[in-house]
Amino acid sequence: MSYHTTQMGIPCIVVMPTRAPITKLTKCQSYGAKTLLHGENMAEAKHYAMGLAKEKKLYYVNGYDHPNVIEGQGTIGIEIIEQVPDLDAVIVPVGGGSILTGIAVAVKHLKPDTQIYGIQTEKAYSMVEALKRGERVKINIEATIADGLAVNLAGVNTFYNLKNAGILDKMVIVKEDWVARAIMHLVENERYVVEGAAAVTIAALMAGLFPNLKGKKVVCILSGGNIDTTILARALERGMAAEGRLVKFKVTVSDRPGGMADMCAMLANTGVTLRDCIPERAWVKGDVFSVEMKVIVETRGWEHTKELVEIVKKRYKDCYFPEMSEHPDKVPGAKRGPCLAPNPVCMQK
């Protein structure tokens, strides 16, 4: 909108939450828009923008519920059908719902048998809750890596179209860790840099939430790349940790000359990369000639991490791997607990 209004000589004011990504802010400014930061979330920014429009007698455009915006998003669906006429499903990220609604209307009209799925995160799920209750409800938005989806109240036009028009097959919620892993996957394997709000579609597939789509032709919407470099770095590290490639542990070693060096040599021989190492002497249980090392290393994945665990445990009797305590099924020799799911996806053929 910032770009097109500038091209048409129309003044444009964009109101964003105070925590909006810097890249999104600077891009709007570079395209010629005046930007204002207000509120902790999009709901507060929207309320301020509507008041400003009324006060200044400006035309207010809702970024996720205006009919023209929804129509514009529908052109994505038209292009999808033109380029992938034999597709089976489309997976779409959902905030206020305009992209999903526009695409769903277009795709279902042109190819009615196509399945349409919407994705939200565990911390921003206003559309899921609205469709579940049959009415628009406000939810509390937590800090989320998919900040572009952080809408606490589903749009009016989007909600009623998705609820009553028969254009939506299913809404799905994905966990934040999978979003981080999806961002990392897209950077490493596809060479795409996308924001968390866009990565939720790939995250849902990676999390195994659509076993019914295996072997099908699926289009995932990657709706934006407005992610700050600092957030991208955090997302990559979170993704590495979720995949067992970034491991933290505590180990008590000798505090005599050569004790720490021996530990570092052992790690080097294991083939891991030492990322951080902090000695703790004051709160160590045992003799005064010991030091507790808080260590973060980079491995090649869970199998490599298992090797590291075995080597460290053989070498030092006092060591603790919190990630392995949280994921006992990944420890060598550990057994899974009984599955409580009534119809486990992993058991379906």
Rank of each mutant, 00 (worst) to 15 (best):
I80K: 00
E82H: 12
V84D: 04
V84F: 15
D86H: 14
D86W: 08
D86A: 13
L87R: 07
L87P: 08
L87C: 11
D88V: 06
A89K: 13
P93V: 09
P93Q: 05
P93I: 10
P93M: 08
G96Q: 07
G96A: 10
G96L: 04
S98T: 03
I99S: 06
I99F: 08
I99K: 00
L100R: 04
T101L: 04
T101S: 15
T101Q: 07
G102M: 13
G102H: 11
V105E: 09
V107Q: 05
V107H: 07
V107D: 04
K108Y: 09
K108P: 02
K108Q: 05
K108W: 08
K108F: 08
H109E: 07
L110E: 07
K111M: 09
P112I: 15
T114E: 05
Q115G: 02
Y117R: 11
Y117M: 13
G118Q: 03
G118E: 08
I119A: 08
Q120C: 01
Q120S: 04
Q120M: 12
E122G: 01
K123S: 09
A124Y: 01
Y125K: 14
Y125M: 13
Y125V: 06
S126D: 13
M127L: 11
V128I: 14
E129Q: 11
L131F: 10
R133T: 09
R133E: 09
G134H: 07
R136D: 00
R136Y: 02
V137A: 04
K138N: 14
I139Y: 01
N140T: 10
N140K: 07
N140R: 05
N140P: 00
I141W: 01
E142D: 13
T144N: 11
T144E: 06
D147W: 13
D147K: 10
D147C: 11
D147F: 12
L149R: 01
L149C: 06
V151N: 05
L153S: 07
A154W: 00
G155Q: 10
G155W: 08
V156S: 01
V156C: 00
N157E: 11
T158K: 09
T158L: 02
F159I: 03
F159G: 03
Y160V: 00
N161L: 14
